[in-house]
Nucleic acid binder design. Structure first.
Lengths: 99, 99
DNA sequence: TTAAAGTACTTTGTAAATCAAAGTTACTCT
DNA sequence: AGAGTAACTTTGATTTACAAAGTACTTTAA
């Protein structure tokens, strides 16, 4: 494949999904609200991107509590880690050809 | 700005525009047909992305000839280089926080 | 105890982006 | 004349993105 963009993952074309993944790579898990604040998104927008990520098997969801309040946290699956690393490798590959 | 995606450039959310820019960073200039083949795109699709890039002042167009045939080449402007480097820096920044 | 607020969504509706395919203009080559 | 090439533009369909509002439930404050 000579095509420099052929190995990029379409799921990660979205800046928001890219942001979610990069946060979850550092944090191991993050709550809905933390993600919302870090990425400065509306509820609906975040929820739909999380949903896309989950549908692709890249995220897992854990519904729990903090005290008495519901608290949903998200973390990356094995497949998600693999896919994300693959995407980053493709990106770096593309960029490396520049310098 | 704590938001990890806040410094990404929206123009470069598109994999195709990312690909065009990365090719033109290496090649100094490239013809319509070369870009089309490298990125495996239809005429219309490529033309519209080139147009977006040009509208943003990131690309300049040179209409010339190869022998008697028309030959349009594209190259990156100063602003384009700056914007693209800024985007890459933002990307690398985001990625660096991971490792 | 009632009202306000928080959590995590889903639904709705709109606007924007993406793309292939076909059409167009202006050649050139045979 | 007829086919072919280059570089588009136009059209139309599909997908994506997003804000805003609505939902269901719980909790905290007055």
């Amino acid at each position: 494949m000579n095509n420099p963009i052929g190995n990029l993952n379409k799921v990660f074309d979205s800046r928001i999904r890219l942001g979610v993944m990069s946060i979850l790579m550092v944090n191991e898990e993050s709550s809905f609200n933390d993600l919302k604040q870090m990425l400065e998104l509306t509820d609906g927008n975040l929820a739909s991107h999380l949903n896309t990520l989950e549908e692709n098997g890249y995220l897992k969801v854990h519904k729990g509590f903090v005290g008495r309040k519901t608290n949903t946290t998200y973390s990356i699956t094995k497949a998600g880690e693999k896919a994300f690393k693959g995407h980053l490798a493709a990106l770096e590959n593309m960029i490396r050809s520049i310098e």
